[in-house]
Write a protein that binds this DNA or RNA. Structure first.
Lengths: 191, 191, 191, 191
DNA sequence: TATGAATGAGTATTCATTCAT
DNA sequence: CATGAATGAATACTCATTCAT
């Protein structure tokens, strides 16, 4: 199975899978994904040899999309808290603006079908939001373990924020702000 | 007059479903659930008319189990923080001791197959861990919304803690403590 | 399986089966029949060892009911045509008044589950409507065969009449009269 | 570009369904129909999305076959009665020659699974046998209702004739002739 | 390379019948 | 004798995957 020609079709399939899984769950048929992508049933398997491979690719694709939206906060002229808040806002906004992507990512994350590295990468990405903080070491945990833990907590709070904000679109800004406040308190070492 | 319906079989099915779903996902077949429970395929449907009804019942069953394990911390002679920590520890311990239950609850929670009331109840239950805190009102949110948000954050941090502790059983106590610390900071209003 | 006690339950089951089959077809479950009859699932099988035996009994039961309604036209003081018309009217009226019985009889008649004798009896019964006519012998057929043929034709016309009359309740009398006219012409030998 | 959908398989399925239903009734399994047709179980559902759709298609298929066999009696040089008799004979002959088709049509006709238009078409087709007769109006019925009634009677007599002739193959010609005689008397207005 | 027809194992669910109570 | 819980084979239908065109 040589890498097939059309980049377009590959993207269309990943996008279609995101939408279909968001509404129908992981049990969504490959046929329905192919249909929404505008390709034939068999064509899907030229790009992704099995359904599980497709699902893993969807996760990677969504992580990449999310990463692209987060942007880089290399501007060091503003405070670390402010830079963090900008990334936080980007993250929440992305989640709200792409509910299908958000839902599908969650489904995949708990599906047990992803390689550990994929989940790690997702965690890391979220962690980046607060990564410039001087690393905190938690009692009883190595530095790496502490960071992993903090990343995970941050991710969890962010997802919670997205979920509630999506459910109450009128209060997006309030949730965004509240989430940031809670997150900041959670990951900031005691003074 | 006929054989009475067996409470045992109902429990066996709920338990079996928990185990099977934890390893095979929500797509686990009703046949495999019945088999592990030691009953005939058709018997499952005498107790749960459809698979979806079974799934919802599994969630309720797990919530009830969790609730029973949390216990009541009515002993008012100790500080509120200490009482909260006891419940927190119980919650984390339960999650670690029952990984199948934990995994299945998570799968169900994101499945979209549960009634809103069920999810609410789960959130409330977790929120109870910190419920004795004087309620905090978050800027821009009503009191109820603030509480809902805090409950959700608490749940998210707890789940994160369970996940990491389960993955690194040697560090259970460290994660438990770290999780509590982070959670406490997160839900405590700024002084 | 000794003949069970309750005549009532037997009748209730036959009646229930008639109603249920009329609406759900021969695939209607024994459970639903038992339920409508107000008895337990297993009880049905004390009265009718198998579903097929029940179905056959339903047919016999309906034939008996029909027979009872037709009455006897032993009053020889009126003309044969008039006596025939009275029976015809009774037959059509019964079909219209008992649509479930009529529908179920038809379903059973084409089901292939009845013994030939049962179908014969049904035909004979219908044939009785015109039985007092001097038997006509049709060219190429024995007397018995001629009678059988005439009975069948009569039955067919009667059923047709019932079907159309039921579909257009306003025109019951017109159909009844038209049906009789056609039937009479059909079975009357050429003068 | 892919394998074209096979007209053969569609026909094979319709034919197979006709045979299987004739012997096993409408409860015949889709698996058995597919097997006799020589295709996989799943293939059946590519051609007919549900069993009910298949059943309806079988009816249409049989009506078409019957129609083709009836032929046209446009030869106006012979008397109307003679032309009618030719069609009558064709109809009866078809029924006798295709007992499975005949049985299946009857089962379907009383199954309640057909659209009214389908039953209408069948009736019309049979009615065509006698259609050239000047339309008779029956007392109390509109012209359309009279025609419908006559069509139904004609169909009923024809089916009766087929049934008896099939049961007694030696007497086919006698029944055919007798049936025509009765039918002709039935539908001819009184002089 | 793209297509979609074909496949057959797998799914949830039903049901006639049995039998412990 | 009546009950209804238990059974497991059977059913309509789905779907990931293959392969002829």
């Amino acid at each position: 199975m040589a890498r097939p020609r059309s980049e377009d079709k590959q993207q269309a399939l990943l996008h279609s899978a995101t939408e279909v899984i968001a509404t129908q769950g992981l049990g969504a048929s490959t046929a329905s994904i192919a249909k929404l992508a505008g390709v034939a049933e068999g064509t899907l398997f030229r790009y992704f040899a099995t359904k599980d491979i497709l699902l893993a690719a969807v996760f990677d694709y969504l992580i990449d999309e999310l990463e692209a939206c987060l942007g880089r906060n290399s501007d060091s002229s503003v405070s670390i808290k402010h830079r963090t808040q900008i990334m936080w806002d980007n993250y929440i906004d992305w989640g709200i603006a792409n509910p299908a992507a958000y839902a599908t990512m969650n489904q995949l994350a708990v599906s047990g079908k992803l390689a550990p590295e994929q989940l790690d990468k997702a965690m890391k990405l979220c962690g980046e939001v607060g990564v410039k903080l001087e690393a905190v070491s938690i009692e009883g945990l190595s530095l790496a373990q502490s960071t992993e833990f903090m990343d995970a907590v941050l991710t969890a709070i962010a997802n919670t924020t997205v979920a509630l904000a999506t459910a109450n679109p009128d209060l997006i800004n309030a949730y965004k702000k509240a989430g940031f406040g809670v997150m900041w308190k959670a990951i900031t070492p005691d003074s």
